[in-house]
């Protein structure tokens, strides 16, 4: 995880215009395809009520562990089969996208906002602010991520907002470190010194001069982290600390289905594939994004 952050942190601000980067991104067919898949997942999450063939929470004990459609005992109206309570797995996967994507997006947005602000302050102002922020970062890094999140979930109780909080509490460290490093390099740059020389206020320098120049690594890191956060949420749900049932979450679907892997392999296989597909697409797309924004790394 550190390595991902490490390897994307460029040494100097990239000056390539955004449209040029986007053009490069679109030209990369793989990344484009991945981005389209991600977009499809997002659309699926938004339009879940129209797309899902069944109510995802409707129990039907008579359909308990009904196999996927193409198997013996399957039915085409229940394409991917049913889970331990007879709920349609496809519908639950479609609705589960909402949880994964919402958590991935919201956690990364908040964490990036908080982390960028703190990293900026620490890197530019140095002094006690830097010491304080860096110490807190050091301390948080000492905690294993999942254990920290589990302990927080135990403290706050289950629920969507609490998962988001539990992940944000540690996640902000990643952008904060990246931004701090970038700012440390940037504050010695000519354009910053020039701004300082003309007596521009500190806040102005930080927000108007430095921030735009370090934005691209931040965006790249954020997209990569989104993939991580989605896996983390799934892991939390898998350990039974996710969203409240009956709300579908891919991680808890895998966990529930695990009890039946000896016979009903479909119950945990399909939601797992959904996680893999979404996370993989995000990773491919974000790699493309990185290459596009930062051609230095494209080899």
């Amino acid at each position: 995880m550190n390595a991902a952050a490490l390897s994307v942190a460029p040494e100097k601000p990239t000056r390539s215009p955004t449209w040029e980067s986007l053009r490069r991104f679109v030209a990369d067919r793989f990344s484009l395809l991945a981005a389209i898949v991600v977009a499809l997942f997002i659309l699926m999450a938004i339009f879940a009520p129209w797309l899902a063939p069944h109510d995802p929470d409707e129990n039907d004990l008579l359909r308990r562990l009904q196999p996927a459609a193409w198997m013996e005992g399957g039915e085409w109206s229940y394409l991917l089969g049913c889970d331990g309570l007879g709920r349609d797995i496809l519908s639950r996967i479609i609705y589960g996208a909402r949880v994964s994507i919402a958590i991935g997006v919201v956690v990364v947005l908040i964490a990036t906002a908080v982390g960028t602000a703190l990293g900026l302050a620490a890197g530019y102002m140095r002094g006690w602010v830097d010491i304080l922020v860096s110490r807190v970062i050091d301390i948080l890094l000492g905690f294993p991520y999942l254990i920290f999140a589990i302990a927080l979930m135990a403290m706050m109780g289950p629920g969507l907002e609490n998962i988001i909080l539990a992940l944000v509490y540690k996640e902000w460290v990643v952008p904060a470190r990246v931004v701090r490093g970038e700012v440390l390099a940037a504050r010695e740059m000519e354009y910053v010194e020039a701004a300082r020389a003309v007596g521009a206020p500190r806040l102005h320098i930080m927000v108007r001069e430095i921030l735009p120049n370090i934005l691209s690594p931040v965006i790249v890191v954020s997209t990569i982290r989104m993939a991580h956060v989605i896996i983390l949420e799934a892991s939390l749900s898998f350990l039974g600390l996710g969203v409240q049932p009956p709300t579908a979450s891919w991680g808890s679907m895998v966990a529930d289905g695990r009890a039946f892997i000896l016979d009903a392999w479909w119950a945990s296989t399909f939601p797992g594939i959904a996680i893999l597909l979404l996370v993989l697409s995000i990773n491919v797309a974000s790699q493309g994004l990185r290459d596009a924004f930062d051609p230095k790394f494209s080899d």
């Binding site: 991902a4 993939a227 896996i231 799934a234 892991s235 898998f238 991680g251 895998v254 966990a255 695990r258 892997i261 000896l262 392999w265 945990s268 296989t269 939601p271 797992g272 996680i275 893999l276 996370v279 993989l280 990773n283 491919v284 790699q287």
Partner: peptide, 22 residues
């Protein structure tokens, strides 16, 4: 490597058990 960082470990583990052990 893209697959490597995208695989949810808990799920991959279950699939491995299913294939090799069960």
């Amino acid at each position: 490597s893209l697959f490597g960082i995208s695989l949810p470990g808990f799920w991959f583990g279950i699939i491995m058990i299913m294939i090799f052990a069960v």
